[in-house]
C-alpha cells in the first residue's frame, strides 16, 4: 500500500528531515511512527500526502508514484487518504454534520450520497446525536471524532494521523484509539505519528522509530522505547 525507497528529504536550511528511508507498509497494517521531536515523523506523512516532494528516492502510495504524479492528479491521490491532526482542523461556525459533509461536497459528491454517508459515519464515531452541534459546543475528544469522521467518510484506503491524541487526556485518547482500531479493522491502513508511550505499549502494533531522519527501529508488535 505504501512503499518508500531510499527517500531523503532536506529542507532549505540544510536540515535533513529524512535520510535514506526505505520502508514498506502493507494493506491493512497499523503502524506507529515514533521518535523524538524533530525526528521527521510529520515530514514522513507530508511526503505521503505530497504536500512536499522528496529530494531523492521513490514513494509509492496505492500503486502511484507520488513524486512523479502530475499536479492535477494530486487531489485524486489524496482522496485515497484521510488525514487527522492534533489540532482537529474543524471549520468554525459549521455544525458537526456540515464539517463532515464538507469533505464530500468539495470533491463533488452528489447530494444523495452525502445524505446517506454522513449519518452513517457519525454513527460510527458515536456522534449521531450531536450532528447539529457547533465545534465550540464539543469537547476535544468529540472534535477529534468529528475530524476522524471527516477523514473517513470517503472510505479512504489509508488513514494518516499526526499525533491525534496529542491534545487529549488519557481516557479520551483511549476512546480515539479504539475508534482508529475499528477503522483499521475495516481494512484501512493506518499510519499514526505519536509521542504517546502508553498507547503504543498497549496496542502492540508495528512500530517504526525515527531519529534525526533515520529509521532506527522497525518492529512488529513493538513498544514505544526499547527496554533499557
Amino acid at each position: 500500500m505504501i512503499t518508500l525507497e531510499h527517500v531523503t528529504k532536506t529542507y532549505k536550511s540544510d536540515v535533513v528531515a529524512l535520510r535514506d528511508v526505505s520502508i514498506e507498509i502493507k494493506k491493512g497494517e497499523f503502524v506507529f511512527l515514533v521518535g523524538p521531536s524533530g525526528s521527521g515523523k510529520s515530514t514522513f506523512l507530508r511526503l505521503l500526502l505530497r504536500e512536499d516532494l522528496p529530494d531523492t528516492g521513490r514513494i509509492l502510495v496505492a500503486g502511484r508514484d507520488v513524486a512523479r504524479l502530475s499536479t492535477w492528479k494530486v487531489p485524486y491521490l489524496r482522496r485515497n487518504m484521510g488525514t487527522v491532526f492534533q489540532d482537529f482542523k474543524l471549520l468554525p461556525g459549521k455544525t458537526v454534520y456540515e464539517n463532515v459533509a464538507f469533505a464530500l461536497e468539495v470533491i463533488g459528491r452528489p447530494r444523495h450520497v452525502i445524505e446517506s454517508q454522513v449519518p452513517q459515519i457519525l454513527e460510527l464515531v458515536g456522534l449521531a446525536e450531536k450532528s447539529q452541534r457547533f465545534d465550540y459546543e464539543l469537547s476535544g475528544g468529540e472534535q477529534q471524532r468529528v475530524s476522524i469522521a471527516r477523514a473517513f467518510v470517503n472510505r479512504p484506503l489509508i488513514l494518516l494521523a499526526d499525533e491525534p491524541t496529542g491534545n487529549l487526556d488519557p481516557a479520551t485518547a483511549e476512546g480515539i484509539m479504539r475508534l482508529l482500531d475499528r477503522i483499521n479493522r475495516t481494512g484501512t491502513t493506518v499510519v499514526m505519528a505519536t509521542h504517546d508511550e502508553g498507547i503504543v505499549n498497549t496496542m502492540r502494533r508495528r512500530v517504526v522509530e525515527l531519529d534525526r531522519g533515520l529509521v532506527v527501529r522497525d518492529q512488529a508488535r513493538g513498544v514505544y522505547g526499547l527496554p533499557a
Binding site: T71, W72, R78, T83, I107, N154
Partner: peptide
Amino acid sequence: RREIQIMKLVGATNWFI
C-alpha cells in the same frame, strides 16, 4: 484559508477551490 487547507487535504481539485 482553513477551508482551503481542508479542501486540499480531502482532495478537492484546484479548479473546484
